[in-house]
């Protein structure tokens, strides 16, 4: 029963891959070697596609792998398998947390956890910055990576548009405040257009 096996394999991945989307990668490599459901080349395609489509990367990879095996039902099965352990574990954690929310030890732990969480996200932000603002290094190349100046200029402009309106001391005009409050997707779409017009990838 291929669907049961798909579900079970991705259930295992979801259960043991701790720390976010790309943590599923070693499990998928292992799965490719054991089951032959997809090749390592297809896995590389999968990563590329996951990174340039919306949605959590782990979920995208499961959907793509499931689709390669058994089309749309396969995609649904693999994805449900992947998210099942998360849902169960988090529902349990959420229930426990609710009961002990006012416990002083729990509160003290969160006092330490929150800045750590911020630090982890700042580190992720840094690695996104390296990917977005510099050229990938060629094999064997050492030293500082080359900077994509076009991308840096776009980043500065975006930052100014999003933040200048919010700085009270500047007495920014109303239109600037309005731009700062736009939905992030507007900036994403505009950046995509800028990327296409100025051939950002080359």
């Amino acid at each position: 029963m291929i669907y049961l096996r798909l579900f079970f394999e991705f259930f295992k991945t979801g259960l043991f891959a701790i720390g976010g989307g790309l943590a599923t990668l070693p499990f998928l490599q292992d799965m490719s070697a054991r089951t032959g459901w997809f090749t390592t080349d297809q896995l590389a395609d999968m990563i590329a596609i996951s990174e340039c489509t919306p949605g959590p990367i782990g979920v995208n990879m499961a959907t793509y792998a499931g689709f390669l095996v058994r089309g749309v039902p396969g995609a649904v099965t693999a994805t449900l398998g992947l998210i099942c352990p998360s849902v169960i574990v988090i529902l349990i954690v959420a229930r426990i947390l609710k009961r002990f929310k006012d416990n002083k030890y729990v509160q003290a732990a969160f006092y330490g956890l929150r800045p750590a969480s911020t630090g982890l996200i700042a580190a992720a932000c840094l690695s996104v910055a390296v990917i977005a603002l510099t050229f990938p290094k060629a094999a064997g190349e050492t030293g500082l990576p080359q900077i994509r100046w076009q991308a840096v200029i776009l980043a500065v402009i975006l930052w100014l548009l999003m933040n200048l309106g919010g700085i009270k001391a500047l007495k920014a005009p109303a239109w600037l405040k309005k731009i700062g409050k736009l939905h992030p997707v507007v900036f994403l779409a505009a950046s995509a257009v800028v990327g296409i017009i100025f051939h950002f990838a080359s």
Binding site: P115, S117, A122, C125, A132, G195, I196, F200, A201
Partner: peptide
């Protein structure tokens, strides 16, 4: 490829803003 090279720049700035907000709260 071009579109996503642009989008990645925006994703960086959006996450940067998020980090600043979280930093203020934590």
């Amino acid at each position: 490829k071009d579109a996503f090279a642009g989008i990645r720049v925006c994703v960086f700035v959006l996450i940067l803003n998020a980090v600043v907000k979280l930093g203020k709260a934590s």
